[in-house]
């Protein structure tokens, strides 16, 4: 009898411990949000909503507005998406539909390995190899030849998010049922017509989910951007300009911020970044759930 009680007792404890650990995940997300709100409170109180649309970022006069970084993040991320999407889409069609598996599998494998290379290494490479190329381009276009700047950051972001967008899109394209494709070929459609009129429309929402996921990564990407964007905390005037993203300004100034309100302003940028990425990721998740239902 003693023995059997032990069974129920430990079963109960084990269930409770694992439930608590699972609840901890919810707690962490809520905890992160609350921490960011509390830590940024001095800044929220001082600047209110003005924080989002003013452009002065001046630790000396203790005036902080985050618009330059919002613009920096949105500009670099969307530019990176625009650059990466055609290549990602073509790559996904190539690996999912055109290339024979014997070729597609090793290429996919290498792509996924490269996607795992840490972002600081992409930053290192961009700093020494991409920056000179951009500088040359800037001279050609008559822009100030910094080499560094928003455009360079967008390029390195595009390279980094490409494998993600590509692998999601490829997986969706592979899910297009064989009989639908055969139906198109059976009607005499060429390969291109089948891709354009059958495969891409069928996989549309999955491809979109891949792009949104890639956007989520680009928005939060820190190191590679920090290393090449030039770290200028002012409103950028063109894509060749030096700038800062929300992530890069935190990386640059967090350990140097001596004033409480400066630190709080940096945390508030983190809070904004958190909210934006959570929304973007939830949208991607919704699309994927809808996809599974279909």
């Amino acid at each position: 009898m003693k023995f059997n009680l032990a069974g129920q007792f430990y079963d109960d404890i084990f269930r409770k411990i694992s439930t608590v650990m699972a609840l901890l995940i919810i707690g962490l997300v809520i905890g992160i949000f609350i921490t960011l709100v509390i830590e940024s409170w001095p800044s929220i109180k001082a600047f209110g909503l003005r924080f989002i649309w003013t452009t002065t970022w001046d630790p000396v006069s203790r005036e902080f507005g985050a618009l330059p970084f919002l613009v920096g993040t949105l500009l670099t991320s969307f530019l990176a998406l625009i650059i990466a999407t055609p290549f990602a889409l073509a790559g996904a069609i190539f690996l999912g539909e055109i290339a024979p598996p014997r070729l597609a599998n090793p290429i996919s494998f290498i792509m996924e390995l490269l996607a795992g290379i840490p972002s600081v290494i992409y930053g290192l490479w961009a700093l020494f190899y991409l920056v000179p190329i951009v500088r040359w381009l800037e001279i050609k276009f008559g822009a100030p030849p910094f080499g560094l700047g928003m455009f360079t950051a967008s390029l390195v972001l595009a390279i980094m998010i490409l494998p993600y967008a590509l692998s999601v899109a490829r997986d969706v394209i592979k899910l297009v049922p064989q009989d639908i494709k055969e139906a198109a070929y059976g009607l005499g459609a060429t390969r291109w017509e089948t891709i354009l009129h059958v495969i891409v429309p069928y996989a549309r929402s999955g491809i979109f989910a891949g792009i949104v996921l890639a956007l989520g990564r680009a928005l939060g990407e820190t190191m590679a951007v920090t290393m090449v964007i030039g770290n200028r905390s002012a409103m950028p005037h063109s894509i060749w300009d030096l700038g800062n993203t929300m992530a890069s300004v935190i990386a640059n100034e967090f350990t140097e911020a001596t004033e409480d309100v400066h630190l709080a302003a940096l945390v508030e940028i983190g809070l904004l970044l958190f909210v934006i990425t959570v929304i973007v990721n939830l949208i991607a998740r919704l699309i994927i759930i809808r996809l599974k239902v279909k």
Partner: peptide, 10 residues
Amino acid sequence: GVPSIVIGIV
């Protein structure tokens, strides 16, 4: 999906 820099702040 939380950006790594935000994790650092936390």
